[in-house]
Structure formats: structure tokens, C-alpha cells
Design a protein around this nucleic acid. Structure first.
Lengths: 92, 92
DNA sequence: ATCTGATATTAACGTTTTCGTATATTCTTT
DNA sequence: AAAGAATATACGAAAACGTTAATATCAGAT
């Protein structure tokens, strides 16, 4: 097992190491969502959701596009994320 | 995508979100190793390696067995770990 | 019983995360 | 232009993390 891009990989893990961000990512795995959608589902303050989305974006897990005055967030590598979560869900 | 055991999953990510621990895990994916083996390969002080191994153990990523006065560490779910790392290695 | 090698634990300290509050930005509508 | 809705950013306090150095533990050999 060779780890070439270790920084990138630890970044991915860091991004998903917070329970709120994990929930956000699990939601985005279903479909793209704007910030207020996420806010309603997760039940956390808007500013905090935005902060977590910024972290996820910083580590390359998500990206977003404008849609009116909303921003629509989506997974950059949906299949990778889904497979990883599936593997861990199956764990023991 | 349903996340039932979110705590456990974020724990796994937290465990692997540090570059030293990622390296340790990548080494253990090759074969089991005692602390001094890891120390030599990673090139970090013994105390630090032990601490990181303790974190990995706390989050259920590794476990260990005694072998004389050494401790032999190994991955608890080698296939899960290998598959996750493989997926991320293939990213983009 | 003591010494030694291997590993673990603890304390201290600087750095990073997390989350709240407040404020700013940007687009849309009027 | 002004107001309102949606989102982002700034800042500060508390908690968590990472590293080093020092010390403790524990199994095996003498």
C-alpha cells in the first residue's frame, strides 16, 4: 500500500472527521442541496453550516454553483464518497 | 445514503486525518509491525509513535498483541482500510 | 532481585477546531 | 435606490489536538 498524495488523503479524512460535516456529506450524496436545505435537515445555525461547507470545499470534497441568490452544493467525487461511506457502513 | 453509526465513522476518519497515523496505517496494511519497526520506518520518536498507535486503537482502527516484550500492531479491518485507501488513491 | 530493552503514560505548551454572535456581501424584488 | 432573502466572513472563547521531554511499566535475561 503506497500513499503518494498523503496530504490530499488526510485532508479528505479531516474534512469528514466532524459529525456535522459527515451528515452534510451524507445528505449531498442523495442529491445536491442549497445551504438552507442543509440547514433545515441538519438543524444547525446557518453560519455554522456555511463554515462547515467552507471546510468541505477547502479540502476538495464539495463544490458549489450559484442559483439565483442561493448556492447549490454538490459532491465533487460522488462515487468515491459513496463507496467510502458504504465500506465503512458495512464495517462489522 | 444513511449514516447509522456516525460516531464510529467520524472516529475512523479522525484516526486517519493525521499524516503520521496515515503512514502508520499504510505500513500496517502491508503487514503487522511492532512499535520499533514503525518507529524506524516512519522516523519519529518512540513516544510519539506510541501515542499515535493509542489513538488508532482508541478509534478501533488497530489492535495489538504481545510478543515477548514487544507489541505487535495490526489492522482490525484490513480489507476495509485497504479498500478505502485504494479508492482515495484512485481519486481524480 | 536487578538490569535492560521495548513500549506506554503524563505533563506542558503551542496550534488548530469548533461554535456562537455579529456583521458583511450579493442577488432579487420593489 | 432601498429592502429583503440567502449566504459568507470576522472574531473570540473554549475545547481538542500534536509534539516534546521526562518518567513509568513490564517482560526477559543475568
Amino acid at each position: 500500500m503506497q500513499i503518494s498524495n498523503a496530504e490530499e488523503i488526510t485532508g479528505f479524512f479531516k474534512a469528514l472527521s466532524n459529525i456535522t460535516r459527515l451528515k452534510i456529506v451524507a445528505e449531498l450524496a442523495k442529491n445536491d442541496k442549497c445551504v438552507s436545505d442543509v440547514e433545515n435537515i441538519i438543524g444547525t445555525r446557518q453560519a455554522n453550516i456555511s463554515q462547515h461547507l467552507a471546510v468541505l470545499k477547502k479540502y476538495g470534497v464539495v463544490d458549489c454553483r450559484r442559483d439565483g441568490n442561493m448556492r447549490c452544493y454538490f459532491l465533487r467525487q460522488p462515487e468515491v464518497v459513496k463507496n467510502v461511506l458504504w465500506l465503512l457502513g458495512k464495517k462489522e
